[in-house]
């Protein structure tokens, strides 16, 4: 509770600073990433993969720590129970209980879909690439429901190892990503991530529902819905290790 109060105080003190002078694009993005990943978190979520003729729901538990560590554990459906993904920095491992093996996902697979969804391995693993590898600029500022919304255009550096031509992000003054558009090298919109159900949890505004939709096929989307989320939890030191990935508690 102490930390929570501290956090609210921190948030409150941060906001007026932006109100006074126009924010810098990169700071907005950094703050937004910090906002949803900055502290340790534990959440329970479901991922719905929707296709024209079928749909699949996967339920999972997610642990995150700092900006660069996360562990995902599937809890349902039964067939895939206990399967997991561990991310540490740019490295990614997958565990398949069926064969009791851990496989390291090579960099060449980073554009493959993650667990059959519309998120690529890259989307899952390298969220902070956007800080190091891109140049940002605010292209629009608007106000909706009394909240300022900044539209930021992020263009990767010339030599950045990135597949996108540019990305457009909409961030509100509570540092919540509202929308994230991915454009290819020919400037065509490929897919869009839209966030909704923004709730104030533990003093942070968090989007509980995020949907990635392919532009050329509106009937193909993946929705990530967070049902429970807790921040600032102490994890045991072996949480983000391969042995923990293999042996779920």
């Amino acid at each position: 509770m102490k930390t929570l109060t501290a956090f609210i105080l921190f948030s409150l003190s941060a906001l007026p600073a932006f109100a006074a002078e126009p924010p810098v694009a990169i700071d907005l993005i950094k703050s937004a990433i910090d906002n949803y990943r900055g502290l340790n978190s534990y959440s329970e979520a479901s991922m719905t993969i929707h296709r024209k003729e079928w749909q699949r729901v996967v339920e999972m538990k997610v642990w995150t720590q700092d900006l660069d560590k996360s562990l995902v554990r599937v809890t349902a459906p039964k067939k895939d129970k206990d399967a997991g993904t561990l991310l540490i920095g740019d490295d990614m491992w997958s565990y398949a209980p069926k064969i009791n093996r851990i496989i390291k996902i090579p960099g060449s697979m980073s554009n493959q879909s993650w667990m059959g969804s519309d998120f690529s391995n890259n989307d899952i693993a390298r969220a902070d690439d956007i800080i190091d590898q891109y140049t940002h600029r605010i292209i629009n500022t608007s106000t909706e429901n009394n909240k300022k919304i900044y539209t930021i255009e992020s263009v990767p550096h010339e030599d950045a190892p990135v597949v996108w031509g540019k990305e457009i992000l909409r961030v509100n003054e509570d540092f919540v990503f509202l929308e994230h558009q991915f454009y290819d090298q020919d400037n065509q919109l490929v897919k869009t991530l839209i966030a909704s159900e923004i709730k104030l949890i533990d003093g942070k505004y968090i989007s509980l529902r995020q949907r990635m939709t392919k532009t050329d096929n509106k009937e193909e989307w993946t929705e990530f819905h967070t049902s429970t989320i807790k921040f600032n939890i102490e994890f045991s030191s072996n949480t983000f290790t391969l042995s923990n990935l293999r042996n779920p508690r």
């Binding site: 079928w54 699949r56 067939k79 069926k98 064969i99 093996r101 496989i103 879909s113 667990m115 059959g116």
Partner: peptide, 16 residues
């Protein structure tokens, strides 16, 4: 060889 991919039903496909 260890195989890991997606099955026809979207489930995790894995075998050795």
């Amino acid at each position: 060889l260890t195989f890991m991919g997606s099955g026809r039903d979207g489930s995790i496909a894995a075998t050795i």
